[in-house]
Amino acid sequence: MALTITCPVCGKRNGYEFRYGGEDKGPRPVEEGMTPRSWCDYVHMNACVAGVQKEWWCHKNGCGAWFTIHRNTLTNLEVEGVEVTS
């Protein structure tokens, strides 16, 4: 895997060590009033950004921490020090 990921605890490591946790969608929504459709959208629908996106990774073969990084989905490279505004 060409991707490297910077774990906040362990530092920059090979992408093999991590598990992808999906796009960052924000905290769990308020459950009150959720329709099956809106719940399904929250769980399964993704923005699929062609560019830099914020996403979750777990250092499963390392410290076990969950954290977010920014990754450019076009180059499959981690982008450091970038804040996404969208």
Partner: peptide, 12 residues
């Protein structure tokens, strides 16, 4: 399991 716990409490 540990990963599951941490994932579902990651925002908290």
């Amino acid at each position: 399991t540990a990963e599951w716990f941490r994932y579902h409490t990651r925002y908290d």
